Simulated assay, not measured.
Amino acid sequence: MNLSLGEKIKDLRKRLDVSQAGLANGVCSQSELSRIERDQHQPSYMTLKGIADKLGVYITYFLSDSDSEREDYLNEVWSQLEKARRNRDYETIEDIVKTEMKNPLFKSQPEHRSLMWHRSMAEYYLHNDFDAAVNTLKDCLTLSSFDRFSAEINIQILNSLGIMYRDEGLLNESKDYHEQAYDLINQFTNLKDKRITAKVRYNLAKVYSDLHEVNKSLEVCYQGLSYCREYEDLFTFAEFHYQIGRNLLMQGKTEKGIDYWKKAKFLFELEGKDNLSKIIEHDIQTFQEHESV
């Protein structure tokens, strides 16, 4: 007999002689668990993982054999990882990766490579291990694959390599990886993650500025602004304005540069990113005070 998700949880809980309150403790409220067991509530990935951990089984124990349910599960994992990336929650990323590395659903190359990409973030940002993170990324980089999915994960990996090398002050190496990512986004225009195009351009523009290749940086920034306008997406829109201002100031075009910084400050305020707005305000004041000396 095929049991539903809630029935499987209830059945295993009773066979292990675990009370509903005991299973819910530290995972969710007892009322939520009760609704889950009666199939009146769909648990989140993290809730289901907590239930599985307490019952001593792997999370896929509760999944059916249907392709659609497994696809839903994979999508939920990617969603949780994306949320953790946005929040810079590298502990959650590490926890999910450690769990899913044992999951047969993630044994195929694309899914495994994506997990490895996320593992590198925990290695670098959580454990400050640059060498381990870079080796992880390089091990799962396969530039010989030319399908869209492979291209997309390759772009993410190259972009991460570029960011990490820049953070370490290795600007020429950073530039090389960002330029490889830039070449790929120009080859593949049907990427699922549209925002990766803006991210790659922004990170390349920053390292060009670091290397005083100002005209190249401006060219990529203007491309980025056009892309944001085309897709009506504010993502990195303010960042490109800030970077353009930085480049113009490096060229001695003070009035235009400050104007772009002020636009970036206003855009960050619109997005509710008050901390970034205050940073730009400080940058403007510092620059103007330095100019007046």
Rank of each mutant, 00 (worst) to 15 (best):
T142E: 13
R195A: 06
S44V: 15
V97K: 05
T197V: 15
N103E: 02
F266E: 05
D193F: 05
D67W: 00
W261H: 05
S31C: 08
F62R: 02
C140K: 06
E239S: 13
G272H: 08
V97H: 05
D183L: 10
L204N: 04
F188L: 00
A181K: 01
T136R: 04
S19M: 03
M250H: 02
I157A: 11
S68P: 01
K192G: 09
D39C: 10
E152D: 01
S277R: 09
T47S: 08
W261Q: 03
L161S: 04
L126Q: 15
D233C: 15
S114M: 13
L161E: 00
L211F: 01
H241E: 02
N87M: 09
N203G: 05
G224L: 09
L126W: 12
K265Q: 15
R119K: 15
Y61G: 07
R195M: 13
L171Y: 13
G272F: 09
A132S: 13
L23E: 01
I279Q: 11
G245I: 07
H178D: 02
N203K: 01
L55T: 07
E7R: 08
G50T: 09
Y227F: 15
V207I: 05
Y177I: 15
F130N: 12
L33E: 06
N135R: 11
P110T: 08
E7I: 14
G252I: 13
K256R: 04
I196M: 00
G22P: 11
I96P: 06
R119F: 13
N154F: 15
K10G: 06
D89Y: 00
A238E: 11
T142A: 12
M101P: 10
L33C: 09
R166Q: 13
V207K: 02
I153G: 07
A205F: 08
S209I: 12
D129Q: 03
A132D: 04
K107G: 11
F146S: 05
M116G: 09
G56L: 03
D233R: 06
A84Y: 00
V200S: 03
A181W: 04
Y260F: 10
K54N: 05
R148W: 00
A52D: 04
S120P: 14
L3K: 02
A205Y: 01
M250N: 01
I157K: 07
D233K: 08
I9Y: 02
N87T: 05
R201G: 14
S144N: 09
I51P: 05
A21C: 11
G169L: 07
M164K: 05
A198M: 11
Q20V: 11
L267Y: 15
H41I: 10
K278S: 11
